[in-house]
Amino acid sequence: MMTQTYQYEEAEAFLSKLRELLQSGISQEQLELQLPYHLPEVEQLLELRPGPLRFFALTGGLSGFLGGLGLCIYTALSWPLITGGKPIVSLPPFLIIAYLLAVLFGSLASFAGFLLLARLPKRDNLLEPSDFGNHFVIVVKGEGQ
């Protein structure tokens, strides 16, 4: 089977073709889709799983939290000077720093995970942009290609 390309102007036509292809036994690996905007229905059709991105967020957030708490406690203990009548290891303020770093590292890790999983930046496409514009495109790759 040759590689076939279908182009659609309307989302509905695109979705029904996709449905048809999936029913005819085309596997997901053979399909390449291009969309002008995010269509949640496609994910439902292909029954995509949540994917690993959330674990990037979780790992980043957790390490930020522990790292922030660790940083505060370590630095406070390395020069144990009482200020403002507060205990050396004052958890309430340290929790603020830990929380902020959890958010920071969590977001940055998610962003890094996104770049990794979406394979961005794409070098070929930076130099010679290929673009299907506002069309919905289905590319069905032939066997063995």
Binding site: K86, P92, P93, L95, I96
Partner: peptide, 12 residues
């Protein structure tokens, strides 16, 4: 909860 606690805790 934290916002209330920390102000009282810090003001002491």
């Amino acid at each position: 909860f934290f916002a209330q606690y920390v102000v009282i805790w810090y003001g002491n």
